[in-house]
């Protein structure tokens, strides 16, 4: 009973935390410098990871689909499948999970560390809203950066796919691109890409919550990092189910 109560209390607290952050994003003064710092940290610094993972995943996916499609003589479908898979689902989801791992841990541990080393108190002592300066900027940066990273992931995977296909069947770049984009529609690209903003909100909110509210030594830092990654990854996958449904609702033609 108390566990259930704790659970709901927790959900309520995290939700309020997220809502407060979103509201805070629209209340001046804006912490521009800190926001840009987080763009650099979450976006730019994640880029190598995203590009490498996307490329590798593109190669792997391409090899797998080739193995299957060759049996049906449908190799021509490989680029189409690759783009459909990545634009619709794999790109957004994998990006979000990778960022949840890298950035979620960093935010959780970083904020907890700042709390423990009284950096947050130091900020507060300057009459600066540490929540806005540290949490809102991170959450908004996550929301902003994830779609961008997703685009990188999508294209890196296409590059990987092309690399793999070119190595096996010497397909030309133009043909690969044409067939990759032939059946994809904006509704397969824009909504799935933008939905990663929701994943960004999840990552920022969950890890921000753990980081900002934990106030206990190195143990706390560790736990905040772990909790951030685990919970935000889980939530991303669960929420993705809902988001896919929502996208189908608004773009009924895109249900594949």
């Amino acid at each position: 009973m108390s566990m259930l109560r704790d659970f709901f209390t927790f959900i309520g607290k995290v939700s309020c935390f997220g809502v407060k952050a979103l509201v805070g994003a629209f209340q001046p003064p804006l912490e521009w410098e800190f926001f840009l710092g987080q763009i650099e940290e979450i976006g730019w610094r994640s880029l190598p990871l995203i590009l490498a993972a996307g490329f590798a995943l593109g190669v792997v996916m391409s090899m797998h689909t080739r193995g299957t499609l060759v049996q049906f003589g449908a190799e021509a479908m490989i680029p189409t499948l690759q783009s459909a898979a990545f634009f619709n689902e794999l790109g957004p989801l994998v990006t979000a999970l990778l960022v949840a791992g890298r950035v979620g841990a960093a935010i959780g541990a970083g904020l907890t560390n700042m709390r423990v080393t009284e950096q947050i108190d130091a900020i507060e002592s300057l009459s600066v809203d540490s929540f806005k300066m540290l949490v809102v900027t991170r959450i908004v940066a996550c929301i902003f950066v994830l779609p961008l990273l997703t685009v990188f992931m999508d294209f890196a995977s296409l590059a990987g796919g092309f690399f793999s296909e070119h190595a096996t069947s010497h397909i030309s770049l133009q043909l690969y691109m044409t067939s990759a984009f032939k059946t994809v529609e904006w509704a397969n690209f824009i909504p799935p890409t933008l939905k990663t903003s929701v994943f960004g909100l999840i990552i920022g909110t969950v890890s921000g919550y753990f980081g900002y509210t934990t106030n206990e030594g190195s143990q706390g830092v560790q736990r905040a990092a772990t909790n951030s990654v685990v919970l935000s990854s889980l939530l991303i996958i669960v929420v993705d189910v809902i988001l896919v449904k929502v996208i189908f609702f608004f773009f009924p033609g895109q249900a594949i």
Partner: peptide, 26 residues
């Protein structure tokens, strides 16, 4: 703040996104 990095990051993402939009079927 490494403004150049942010610039490269955001701009190339936007360019790629636009390329996607242009390449996509419709």
């Amino acid at each position: 703040i490494n403004y150049a990095a942010i610039g490269v990051f955001v701009l190339s993402a936007v360019v790629l996104f636009s390329v996607g939009l242009f390449l996509i079927g419709n």
